[in-house]
Nucleic acid binder design. Structure first.
Length: 637
RNA sequence: GCCCAAAUAGCUCAGUGGCAGAGCGCGUCCUUGGUAAGGACGAGGUCGCCGGUUCAAUCCCGGCUUUGGGCUCCA
């Protein structure tokens, strides 16, 4: 009985019964067979060698289809495992999934792999690729699989098989001397795997559980062509060159010291950036109707018991004792704002009340998880809490969305991702409250014309939330802003407002931040702009570079004029040639260089060089100052 | 917290069981220059901290500290 399948161009092809994707591809053209990695059958990706079913829609997947890359990477992970088992027969295999930008495979090893081991493994992988070993799928019964992997001495695989849900098809893949439990699909033979590279090793726990065995994870990546692989490796290099920890040191922005682990020390230049960020937010707050408050650093634990932090957040808090009273450093500002709100009676006419706070926060992070500026133990948020009546939520949310998008655009973040997290299983409050809160968030997003995805059940126990992520210049996502609805804390603190009818209501509290942690934001910004800050943020906005010491006095005049105008300049009086001074200013990514020689001193001008555009020629001093002032005022990117 | 790795001049890094090294940076001098590195000389170090082995430790061993890569994107 012949079967027929439908191709993507809607043509129908007749095949003999038992024909596979390989037969189909070969039938269409030998070149297609050569280019084929897998097939898509009724939407699901399958092995090229899987038998075709009558009446199905089939497409041959080549390197042009995005799915093919995952297949290649997954198969390369198997190639890695095969190479490891050839070189290190005692090693037990864990899992080897595809991840963003590559794959990894976990191994239980006697001795952690060294970089030299990785080289040897990679060489072995190339050998297997050249051998062009066929990759063959088998389906098996659970008991057979357990027995088989047990006989192979692979305890992790046995564990996985036993825990697979009933009813799923269990499959294994054989390639030469290697056999692995795997859902597939895979490339038809190892010769299809050509452009791959092992990157590094790291420890990982079996199934991410620190009580379970520690495995040696090998990370790698694979592409269709060497060219794409090289491009990817180049991007990794680029990311390394932009690393904010490296740039922070080179540009003199901040340092870290063992005296306060994971806590940045901002140097004068880093402090300029930090303060500019705060100034910028303050300016926005004026327009948006926020009032800034200042609240204490160390607070009695009784308050943290009221707020719930003592119960739910204690492990991340720092405690101290004075006069037999226990205090905690604040990890969040919200409870202190509730105390301020509670000092007076509030009418519905007073709402919304928006308290902003640039207070320093301390959170204990486990020693292994801190990282540069992006994960620290002390930081400051552009934090604010909005107290409003439930019916005001939607309007507040809408204006917040406009606000946050405006801020992100100022920094040159064009692509923004929004996630709405809805009610979790364990939660406070009535369903009506949740309906209102989630509905308000969703409506406000829709009315603002913002696309978003939903994270069902991922909201906080006290209310739903929205997270905002930006993509930086290297297209890496970073979560920055957040908007959380909180029904719980206002009532815990007994906060009320008087409604129009004279009865008392409990306000809703919105927690919100735009930049998130200023420390983390600065780290992201450094990497986003590779240390070349827009003029308004640049620690040094212009370098004054005299060519000869005959013009030092003129240079000093320009310096004082700039200081009067509030422009940050640096005067380079070193006994160096102008080329050297320009080079050094360029390396510090200073936006403007003012080159001064006898000509400029005589005419009262400055020769302007821009860090990207190069020599802009001579300009009148006032012209230059007017232009740079304007650039700063509008916060040009 | 756990695993692996690193820690040597301000920075980047080399090196050795027996006097501590380079490049850049810094200082002084010569040079006074026109849009990405002029030249000479010089200063600068408890080789992260504590202990052990040794005639001798920056180097070998142990502990600690900090930093870095990671610790489910589930066959």
């Amino acid at each position: 009985m012949p079967i027929s399948v439908r191709l993507p161009d809607d043509s129908v092809r007749e095949m003999p019964d038992g024909a596979t994707g390989t037969d189909l591809a070969r039938g269409i053209s030998p070149r297609l067979l050569d280019a084929a990695f897998a097939i898509r059958v009724d939407g699901a990706v399958q092995d090229l060698n899987s038998p075709l079913k009558d009446g199905s829609k089939v497409a041959v997947i080549t390197s042009k289809d995005p799915e093919s890359l995952d297949v290649v990477r997954h198969s390369t992970a198997h190639l890695l495992a095969q190479a490891v088992q050839r070189l290190f027969p005692k090693v037990k295999v864990g899992i080897g999934p595809v991840i963003e930008d590559g794959f990894y495979y976990d191994f239980l090893v006697e001795k952690f792999f060294t970089p030299e081991d990785l080289e040897a493994i990679e060489a072995e992988m190339r050998r297997i690729s050249e051998e062009n070993v066929p990759v063959v799928r088998e389906e098996l019964e659970r008991e057979d699989a357990i027995q088989r992997f047990g006989a192979m001495g692979e305890p992790f695989k046995v564990e996985l098989v036993s825990e697979l849900p009933a009813g799923v098809t269990i499959s294994g893949y054989r390639q030469g001397d290697f056999y692995d439990l795997c859902r597939g699909p895979h490339v038809p033979s190892t010769g299809k795997l050509k452009a791959f590279k092992l990157l590094h090793t790291a420890a990982a726990y079996w199934r991410g559980d620190e009580k379970k065995a520690q495995l040696c994870r090998v990370y790698g990546t694979a592409f269709h062509t060497q060219k794409e692989l090289d491009e990817h490796l180049r991007r990794l290099e680029e990311a390394k060159a932009r690393d904010h920890r490296k740039l922070g040191r080179e540009l003199g922005l901040f340092s870290f010291h063992p005296e306060a682990p994971a806590s940045p020390f901002f140097h004068p230049k880093g402090t300029v950036i930090y303060n500019e960020l705060v100034n910028y937010m303050r300016q926005n707050y004026l327009r948006e109707g926020y009032s800034e408050v200042i609240t204490p650093q160390a607070l009695d634990v009784s308050m943290w018991k009221t707020s719930g932090h003592y119960d739910k957040y204690q492990e991340n808090m720092y405690f101290t004792e004075v006069e037999e009273k226990e205090y905690a450093l604040k990890p969040m500002n919200c409870p202190t704002h509730c105390l301020i709100y509670g000092t007076g009676k509030h009418s519905y006419r007073d709402l919304p009340i928006r308290y902003a706070d640039f207070g320093r926060l301390h959170r204990y992070e486990r020693s292994g998880v801190t990282q540069g500026l992006t994960r620290v133990r002390t930081f400051c948020q552009d934090d604010a809490h909005i107290y409003c009546a439930p019916e005001q939520m939607k309007v507040e949310m809408a204006s917040f969305f406009a606000f946050i998008m405006d801020v992100y655009h100022t920094f040159g973040f064009e692509e923004i991702r929004i996630q709405l997290s809805t009610r979790p299983e364990k939660r406070l409050g009535t369903d009506e409250m949740w309906d209102l809160a989630e509905g308000s968030l969703a409506d406000a997003l829709k009315e603002a014309g913002l696309a978003y995805t939903i994270n069902p059940g991922d909201g906080a126990f006290y209310g739903p939330k929205i997270d905002f992520s930006v993509l930086d210049a290297l297209k890496r996502p970073w979560q920055l802003g957040t908007l959380q609805v909180d029904y719980s804390m206002p009532s815990r603190f007994g906060l009320t407002y008087v409604k129009p009818d004279g009865s008392e209501g409990t306000p809703v509290m919105l927690h919100r931040a735009i930049l998130g942690s200023l420390e983390r934001f600065m780290g992201i910004l450094i990497e986003h702009c590779a240390g070349a800050f827009p003029v308004w943020l640049a620690p040094v906005q212009a370098a004054i570079l005299p060519i000869t010491d005959r013009v030092h006095d003129y240079a000093k005049q320009i310096q004082s004029k700039a200081m009067e105008l509030g422009i940050r300049v640096e005067l380079d009086l070193r006994n160096e040639k102008v080329n050297a001074k320009i080079r050094d200013a360029q390396l510090l990514k200073i936006p403007y260089m003012l080159v001064l020689g006898d000509r400029e001193a005589a005419s009262g001008q400055v020769s302007v060089r821009h860090r990207y555009q190069g020599d802009l020629g001579a300009q009148g001093l006032d012209d230059f100052f007017a232009k740079i002032k304007e650039e700063i005022r509008v916060r040009a990117r």
